[in-house]
Amino acid sequence: MTDIGEAFAAAFSLVYHLDRDLGEIVLLSLQVSVGAVAVASVIGLPLGAAVALFRFPGRGAIVVVLNALMGLPPVVVGLVVYLVLSRAGPLGVLGLLFTPTAMVIAQVFLVTPIIAALARQVIEDMWSEYEEQLRSLGATPRRALGALLWDGRVSLLTAVLAGFGRAIAEVGAVMIVGGNIDHVTRVMTTAIALEVSKGDLALALGLGIVLVALSIAVSAAVALLRGTLAQAQAR
């Protein structure tokens, strides 16, 4: 398989020459996925915590659905978001189709269930330890939720990272709602898909290697952040 050797050569060449297009694509990939994860965290963390804390009818069903939605097929999400954002769809007037915003929206749907489901598990485990103490101190449900989210920050970061992994690696949804337009909505995964469709497997794999390196870099940054967070107790 000479392709694999060529792939590494292509990857090094791309990085070594600081290819401007590559830089643009990497930056957009990060913007879209980080943006989606940020929005998904704002929705998913409190949602997961609320499901963990509150007892209400249908809660069991919600837990099952949340867990199941972790496996949402990206192409299906992309298709649904396309139909909604299409000019012929209900939100077509916003003109968001084929923009990075549309890609963020699609990824939010993919990432939120992951963050919410993992956060629910983390918070539920903590709640069994914290419940009586927080109630004794007079915490309202809202304050209890805030305290648990903050105290669980290190574990919750793993949930957020899992969401990021999903976002940065998926191609089906961003391809459909972004359109893979050069210099506008082309990200790492759609660029890889394009090179595969062109038949340039070496370049596709080279881009893949860059993507994996990027994921490792993000994961390392999160590890550093985790250290900072652990120390945040000291403040």
Binding site: E129, Y130, Q133, A147, W150, D151, A232, Q233
Partner: peptide
């Protein structure tokens, strides 16, 4: 067994 919050 008092629960201490993960802060100072």
């Amino acid at each position: 067994r008092p629960v201490m919050l993960r802060r100072s």
